[in-house]
Design a protein around this nucleic acid. Structure first.
Lengths: 251, 251
DNA sequence: CGGGTCGTTGACCGTGATCAAGTAACGTGG
DNA sequence: CCACGTTACTTGATCACGGTCAACGACCCG
């Protein structure tokens, strides 16, 4: 009852720059419609015609890519406040499958709405651009993890990354967070198997770096964890000095 | 003597949409300055202050990320016509190292130039945005390869990807191209070792899928290669129908 | 109580890493 | 012109990380 005066998208975007009126109007348009999806539902498939983007209001979702023989790779995890679908706007068809990791609520909006943003709201355009390219850096980090880290290091990396993401919107209890993904899903994120995810989790727990209970994880030794996987947080800071208009925090 | 009436950046960007005058002016500003770099030179380091982007005029380069213990992951390979540095514009510091794989020529331009683009040239802004998010899809494919493919499949994927990239600008002899990277570098792209890259290359050659001589590779059996790694080309087509203005090829 | 999902643990195996030696191509200086 | 160093690629032997297969227990829900 007390929330919703500020949507989580506005909240997220305001974190990076002061939004002008035009920007706020555009964002409001993004969130006109709402759609509930239930756990394990697949919202779209690879190859589907691609006309909408989605704002996540509630729940975790993820995007994955399949190989023919059943192997799959989860390539992005979507949290409340995320916009889903940017990677695909350059194409007419979906390149991944979007699946709900738990019950969730989405706001679909047509990608054609973006042309208005580019014409009328350079500030928001620049911000979305910045977020899109920031995502690329996040994927670069991720690639480094998958390509060059051991199983143990990957798990550490994964947990720290989830934590850093969640910290942007929720200022909840530090170090502890809900993880609504099963180990098979985590293995598909990290390029491992569910069995080895289990073993690595157990090992990290045995060494006192983390602890688990139910669907939540607590990071006990953040510094040691960061050392393990050479982690750097890409989520909290954003350089907005090059943004057009008077809204840049040019300091 | 005969080229340079159209820069390779204009050539590349024109491939996707008809550029208006404002866009062409902006692009011209990107290419005012030139700088030659020699093989193995590192143009910037991780952590360097980050004020420029670069247009590649000539030669191959790559961006890599290090782990403390010397392991490294090459995260992007840059060809003539590419713009280098978009991922970093959301940050004040470099997140990767840029290194020249061979002698090359770059056009540095300040990222502050982008604000003009967002204010005055919505078309170019949209195109750059589209290319940035397209890059994300390319990285998703890549992630799938690193995370879930065998060494043999990864090599196949890598060669097809290089070929698809080069085809956008150069319409040269199909199936054959120069590959100015050594096997250690390729191993750092694919998350393997130089030894196993050598073995996999030899195996592909033995099976008649490719052939090599000097620094060039020929893809003999493109279809079988594509099957091996479930390849799809992300480089030739781009959806521009949502672009602002009358320039969209809305067909 | 019975079926389903999920995590854990054990035994075994294979892909690809590691270590090391050898070869070929190339440029340099004697 | 040949000795020499360097770099790149290849090939062999061995090893280990993580995959595979399978069984089992915990929990949940009908």
């Amino acid at each position: 009852m007390n929330m919703h005066k500020k949507s989580c998208l506005v909240q997220r975007l305001s974190h990076y720059t002061d939004l002008d009126e035009t920007s706020l109007d555009s964002i409001a348009r993004f969130e006109r419609e709402e759609k509930d999806v239930s756990k394990n539902e697949e919202i779209y498939q690879e190859g589907d015609h691609n006309i909408h983007l989605y704002v996540v209001k509630r729940g975790w979702l993820y995007s994955y890519a399949d190989l023919k023989d059943g192997r799959r790779q989860i390539v992005e995890i979507h949290h409340p406040g995320d916009i889903i679908g940017f990677p695909d706007i350059a194409f007419t068809e979906r390149t991944t499958v979007l699946k709900a990791a738990e019950d969730a609520r989405l706001c679909p909006f047509p990608k054609k709405d973006l042309d208005e943003v580019f014409k009328a709201s350079p500030q928001l355009a620049a911000l979305l651009f910045a977020l899109a390219v920031r995502n690329q850096v996040i994927m670069i980090d991720f690639l480094r993890a998958i390509g060059r880290m051991s199983a143990r290091e990957r798990i550490a990396y994964f947990l720290l990354d989830m934590q850093a993401r969640l910290r942007v919107t929720n200022k909840v209890t530090p170090g502890i967070f809900r993880l609504p993904l099963n180990q098979t899903e985590i293995s598909d994120v990290l390029g491992l198997t569910n069995v080895y995810v289990s073993r690595s989790f157990t090992a990290l727990e045995r060494d006192g770096l983390i602890s688990r209970s139910n669907g939540t994880v607590e990071i006990l030794e953040e510094e040691r964890m960061k050392q393990i996987c050479d982690f750097s947080d890409r989520h909290t800071k954003l350089d907005t000095t090059w943004f057009p208009g008077a809204y840049a925090t040019a300091g």
